[in-house]
């Protein structure tokens, strides 16, 4: 199958700190890859490299056939990549000065020059899909955290991305709102969206992931089907991590 993300020997440093070490990782179309690991392990940095929010020092990265060069190299493909890759953040990062609907319409209008009526229609359809069409004219600050994150997902979907990145999408939410966001993500996965998800929600990982990747100190330590990684981890670092997080 065709690969949408190809990383080879990718290395990333923050100053002296070696954050990602020789990462080899491919993602196929339609695949849901969940990345787990302790905080500071480099898992967020890894997916932030995919849409160029973080530059990397060496290695190769291709996103949907577009190569992206290491720091200092040619970044001309970056804008193409970003049009095809949607991202959802831990802190939602909705635009507080725009209404919910305008948040969703902004990129289609500016980047794709979609006309207003069409962008409006798409926005309403997406809001309906994430279950909050009745909040279209409100401002983000008037919404609950779970609702805000659902708007953020709708906003990313409005660009019709070929790949969605989720960077700890439920970590900033109150426990009772986690479910509604995971439900939307589960639906997306079912519809065939290619997804890379960094999360601490092990239940979601087990249920939705096609592949789970465990990353520790910037290295991929273990990867495989969720049953394999969760029920029969081979590496002792994975075992120790899972025994800590699955206890609760």
């Amino acid at each position: 199958m065709e690969k949408i993300v190809r990383m080879q020997r990718l290395n990333k440093y923050f100053g002296q700190h070696h954050v990602l070490k020789d990462i080899d990782l491919s993602v196929e179309h339609g695949e849901v890859v969940v990345i787990i690991g302790a905080s500071g392990s480099g898992k967020s940095t890894l997916i932030r490299c995919v849409n160029g929010l973080e530059e990397f020092e060496s290695g190769e990265l291709q996103v949907d056939q577009h190569p992206l060069e290491p720091k200092g190299g040619n970044q001309k493909n970056l804008s193409e990549i970003r049009k095809e890759v949607g991202m959802v953040f831990q802190q939602f990062n909705l635009f507080p000065h725009l209404s919910v609907k305008d948040n969703i319409m902004l990129a289609p209008r500016k980047v794709k020059s979609t006309d207003k009526a069409e962008a409006d229609k798409v926005a309403m359809k997406l809001l309906d899909r994430v279950g909050i069409a009745n909040q279209a004219d409100k401002y983000p600050s008037q919404l609950s955290g779970g609702q805000q994150q659902r708007v953020a997902i709708a906003r990313a979907l409005a660009m019709e991305p070929r790949l969605m990145l989720f960077d700890e999408p439920t970590s900033a939410l109150d426990p009772e709102m986690i479910g509604e966001v995971l439900d939307v993500m589960r639906e997306l996965a079912k519809e065939g969206m290619t997804m890379m998800v960094v999360t601490h929600e092990m239940g979601f990982a087990r249920e939705v992931a096609d592949r789970v990747i465990y990353i520790d100190s910037g290295q991929i330590v273990e990867e495989g089907k969720p049953e394999a990684v969760f029920d029969n981890p081979q590496n002792e670092r994975t075992q120790s991590f899972l025994s800590r997080v699955l206890k609760h």
């Binding site: 929010l53 902004l106 980047v111």
Partner: peptide
């Protein structure tokens, strides 16, 4: 917040589009 710029460019907006329609109004 830096997250505003990150959200803008992640949606495919250029640096200057992100600045003038996301950062500047706020």
């Amino acid at each position: 917040d830096k997250g505003q710029t990150e959200a803008g460019v992640s949606l495919g907006l250029s640096r200057s589009q992100t600045f003038w329609s996301v950062v500047w109004p706020q």
